[in-house]
């Protein structure tokens, strides 16, 4: 089985978010980038398929050279090879088209992406990618098993979960639950050394049009200070929620 794991390179959650160029660009100054948490769960599940079922795992990112340390980290965790499509991705649609080309050319059986990335939180790429390559698609995936060409997946829904059966080729949007958190791996020295020798192929982009464009950013208005209510005077809380906030 050939697995492609899509890796989005995102600011660590604790990063301060700022903008430059008249609020038109994200300010990467001092920001630490990590593998998107949903993708880390997916990559770890891919490692399980590699170790238990002999899968070959390639990781891919659509992005500039600055994302290579993130791809190297994925290689250090255990992926066999990496691909970077060298373009400054403009929107989810564009990323999906580039990924679809990589997925088609490489004839992958399973593509693991994340439910959403924590930067633009689009939640668009996996579904678009699946549609473009006409593969089956399961998102919010919290469990995945594969036997031959059939797959069984569990997905989270608004009020619980559901189990589905499907076949390869398959694209999933993974999230927490796909593997146990204690199974997430921190690259060790040996992994890091080996990662240096693993192939990282850089491809030129194929597409240039964009369907959407982020033109400006804005930070939420600063919040007023919290109104403290005395624990002995909860009637006041109820009155504030009713008369001022109008939420009860």
């Amino acid at each position: 089985m050939k697995i492609l794991v899509c890796i989005s390179h995102v600011p660590d959650t604790t990063s301060k978010i700022n903008f430059t160029d008249n609020d038109s660009k994200f300010d990467t100054n001092g920001v630490q980038f990590v593998i998107n948490p949903n993708d880390e769960f997916g990559l770890t599940r891919a490692m399980w398929f590699k170790e238990k079922q002999g899968a070959i795992v390639t990781v891919v990112n659509v992005g500039g050279i600055e994302t290579e340390p993130t791809l190297r980290k994925a290689l250090a965790i255990g992926a066999d090879s990496a691909i970077r499509v060298n373009t400054d991705a403009k929107d989810g649609f564009h990323v999906a088209k580039e990924l679809a080309k990589v997925a088609k050319d490489g004839a992958y059986d399973l593509v693991i992406a994340g439910r959403e990335s924590i930067d633009y939180n689009g939640g668009m790429v996996p579904g678009m990618l699946a549609s473009l390559i006409d593969a089956n698609f399961v998102t919010n995936c919290i469990h995945l098993e594969i036997e031959g060409t059939t797959a069984k997946a569990t997905r989270e829904i608004d009020s619980g979960k559901e189990t589905v059966s499907t076949t390869l080729p398959l694209v999933i949007g993974g999230q927490k639950g796909l593997v146990e958190e204690n199974d997430l791996r921190i690259p060790n020295m040996r992994g890091i050394m080996m990662a240096r020798k693993k192939p990282l192929t850089v491809l030129d982009p194929t597409y240039s049009t964009t369907e959407t464009a982020a033109v400006k950013f804005e930070k939420p208005a600063p919040k007023g200070a919290v109104k403290l209510v005395d624990a002995g005077n909860l009637d006041e809380l109820i009155s504030l929620l009713h008369n001022e906030a109008k939420v009860i």
């Binding site: 978010i17 924590i118 930067d119 633009y120 950013f217 804005e218 930070k219 939420p220």
Partner: peptide, 9 residues
């Protein structure tokens, strides 16, 4: 965007 830390037009 950015897990509710910003908005994007």
């Amino acid at each position: 965007a950015f897990t509710n830390k910003a908005f994007n037009f």
